[in-house]
Design a protein around this nucleic acid. Structure first.
Lengths: 347, 347
DNA sequence: TTGTAAGCGTTATCAT
DNA sequence: ATGATAACGCTTACAA
C-alpha cells in the first residue's frame, strides 16, 4: 500500500492541508481566516471546520517572513532580575506584560551584563527581525563594534532612565523633585546633618537624586556641607551590601548625621539592621529613609519610610508608548510619572 | 537616472544583496556563513567583507521557516512575577536565563492568569512554531477546549512542581523532607503546639509541605492534634496578607501554639510584624519560621529563620534538561535538589 | 568549488 | 467569490 501524503502529516497541519480538506485553494483559506467578510459564508464554515478538526494553527515563522512583523517585543534588562527586596524591575515588567499581553504582543527577555557577547546578541535580535520593538530598562545602550541598538532603526522606549538625549522616548519619574521634598521634610523635623547611602557612582539615578537632595538642602537654607555620602562602589543589585558598607562608614563618623537617605529599600533595611546591632535606635537616634516603596517595608521593624516609585504604571506607560509608536503615532520624548513619599516609622 | 535595486535597499540587507555585492550566488553566501570549510578561502573573505559593509544579519523568520526551529524557549509563569520579598520565581528565571543565554537560546515570557485568553495564547505559541520548547513554573497546565500544552508535542520541563504524572520531567526540591526536619528541630527545642501559616489550599507545595510537617510531628512522638493551620484562602502572591490574616487567627487562640511555620518568608515577616504590634515577642514568646530563603531575611529584626530553596540552581537545571531533551537525549522524570534550613534569630 | 532550483507556510496581487 | 501565482529570505540537494 502506497503511503499517501496525509499519512506522513507529522506535527502541525499547514494551510495547504486545510485547503485540501475543505476542497478550496490556500488563498481562500487565508482569506477566510483573515477577512471573514470577503468569502462565502458556506465555504467559510467548511474551512473553519476543516481547520478545527485538523487542529490548524498558522505558522508564526511563515507569517512573519511574509508580513515583516513578528508581534514580539524585546525587553532589555540591566542584569539580574533579582534585586533583593526592591521589586521595581519585576513590577515594571508586570506593567509591561499586562499591557502588551492585552494587545497581542509577546515578550522576549534579553539580559545585559551576562557576558561579553550579550550586547551583540541584543543588537542582533534587533536587526534580524526577531522583534518589532524594544523596551530598555537600563542606562546603557547595547552596542557592538559595528552599531548600537539605536542604529538598528528598531522602535525603542526607555523605562526609568531618561535617554531622550539619545533620541529614545523615555518614561521616568520626578525622583529628583521628591528627593528634594523629602530632604526639606527632614530639615523641618530639625535634622541638620544628612547622609546619603549612594548607589553606583555616576549612574543616572544617582545624579538626579543627589541633585534633588542638594536642592532640598539649599531650600532649607542649610550649608552644602550638611550632606555627606557613601562611596557608591557597588551596583544596585548589591543593595544589602551597600547598606552594610555605608553603615560601617556611618558608625565611624565622629559627628554622626541624624538623617539618612538611601538609594534603595534594600540598602535602608541592611543599614538599619547594622545600626540596630550597634546599639543605635531608629528613628530615635537616627532617621532612615529608603527608596523604591517595596511592599516589605510595611512589615519590618521599624517600618520603613520610603519613596514609592509607580513601577507598574511606568511599565504599562512604556508599553503603551511603544505600541503607539509601532502604529506610526508620534510619542513625547519625556513622560514623567509621580513618585510619592510613604511615611512610616523609620523617619 | 534609473533607480537601481540597491538604492531602494531600505532596512536590513538580505543574503541576495550580499551575494550581489560579492559577485556570487546566494547559496555560496549561505555556505560561506554556515560551512566555512566548504568554500574557497578567497571568495569566503570577499563574502564576509560584503556582509560586513552591508551590515548583514540573517533573517530570523526565514531561517526558522526553513529549519523548523526558532531558538526560543517559552517560560510559562504562574501569574505575577512579583511576589513580595520572596524572590523564588525571579531567581529561578535568573538560573534559566543564564543557562539558556549561554547556549544561544532566547527567552519568551508567557504569563498565565492574566485573563481567560492567556491559556489559549500559550497553547497557541506552543503549536505555531514560535518556540522550540517550554519551561513551566506553574502547577496548572495551560489548555484550551481543544488541547492542552502537553498535547502540542512541544518538549516541556517543569520547575518547582512535580508534574511527572503528566509525563513532564520535573525539577523539584526535597521540601517535604526539610519541613519534617524543621518540625523535629522545633520539637527538640521543646515546642509542643505548632501552627502552619498556609498557602493556597490544595496546591502542590501545600500538600507536600504539610505532609512533611505531619511526618515530623509523628517522628517526634507528638499527637496529630499538635498541629493547627490557617485557612489557605489566598494565593502565594498575597503572601503579606496571608501572614496578617493568620496572625489574626493565631491571636484569637485560647491556647496559642509556640512554634509557627509559614508558607513563605513574606507570610512570616508580616506574621511577625502583627505579633510584635500585639505585644508578643519573637522568638521569646513565639518562634516563627519562614520559607524561601529571601535575602532580606538576614536584615530584619529579628532576623528570619527560614528554609532556603536552591532557586537559581533549579532554574539552570531545568534549562539544562530542556536543552538535552531538545538534543534528543533522554532525561529523568524527577530531579530533586536540596533545600536547606537557615537558622537565624526568629526560631 | 560554485550555481541552480526547490521548498518552508504565509499573504497579497491579479486574474477569472 | 474564488483560484493561481509570486514573493518573503533562507537552506540544501543536486547539477555543473
Amino acid at each position: 500500500m502506497a503511503i499517501k501524503k496525509t499519512d506522513v502529516a507529522t506535527g502541525q497541519a499547514s494551510m495547504k492541508q486545510v485547503a485540501d480538506a475543505a476542497g478550496v485553494a490556500v488563498s481562500t483559506v487565508s482569506r477566510a481566516l483573515a477577512n471573514p467578510g470577503r468569502v462565502n459564508e458556506k465555504t467559510r464554515k467548511r474551512i473553519l471546520e476543516a481547520a478545527q478538526t485538523l487542529g490548524y494553527t498558522p505558522n508564526a515563522a511563515a507569517r512573519s517572513l511574509r508580513k515583516g512583523r513578528t508581534g514580539a517585543i524585546m525587553i532589555v534588562l540591566p542584569g539580574q532580575l533579582f534585586h533583593g527586596a526592591s521589586q521595581v524591575i519585576p513590577l515594571v515588567l508586570a506593567g509591561i506584560d499586562r499591557f502588551l499581553a492585552a494587545h497581542g504582543y509577546n515578550i522576549l527577555i534579553a539580559n545585559l551584563d551576562r557576558d561579553e557577547s550579550s550586547e551583540a546578541h541584543i543588537v542582533n535580535l534587533a536587526s534580524n527581525g526577531s522583534v518589532d520593538g524594544a523596551i530598555i530598562i537600563s542606562s546603557g545602550i547595547p552596542q557592538t563594534s559595528q552599531k548600537s541598538l539605536t542604529q538598528t532603526g528598531l522602535p525603542i522606549i526607555s523605562a526609568l532612565h531618561d535617554l531622550s538625549h539619545h533620541g529614545i522616548p523615555s518614561v521616568i519619574t520626578n525622583e529628583s523633585e521628591v528627593m528634594g521634598k523629602m530632604t526639606e521634610l527632614l530639615a523641618q523635623q530639625g535634622h541638620r546633618q544628612f547622609f546619603y547611602v549612594a548607589g553606583p557612582q555616576g549612574m543616572y539615578h544617582e545624579r538626579v537624586r543627589l541633585d534633588g537632595i542638594r536642592q532640598g538642602i539649599a531650600q532649607a537654607d542649610l550649608p552644602a556641607g550638611s550632606l555627606r555620602k557613601s562611596q557608591g562602589l557597588r551596583p544596585y543589585q548589591e543593595g544589602f551590601q551597600i547598606g552594610v558598607d555605608a553603615a560601617d562608614m556611618f558608625l565611624d563618623f565622629a559627628q554622626r548625621p541624624t538623617a539618612v537617605m538611601c538609594c534603595s529599600d534594600d540598602a535602608a533595611l541592611s543599614f538599619i539592621a547594622k545600626l540596630t546591632t550597634s546599639g543605635l535606635r531608629v528613628p530615635e537616634d537616627v532617621c532612615v529613609v529608603g527608596f523604591d516603596g517595596s511592599a516589605v517595608g510595611a512589615f519590618v521593624n521599624p517600618s520603613l519610610t520610603t519613596i514609592a516609585q509607580p513601577a507598574e504604571a511606568i511599565g504599562s506607560k512604556v508599553a503603551e508608548l511603544l505600541t503607539r509608536q509601532l502604529d506610526g503615532e508620534h510619542v513625547p520624548m519625556v513622560t514623567q510619572l509621580d513618585s510619592a513619599i510613604v511615611r512610616r516609622q523609620s523617619a
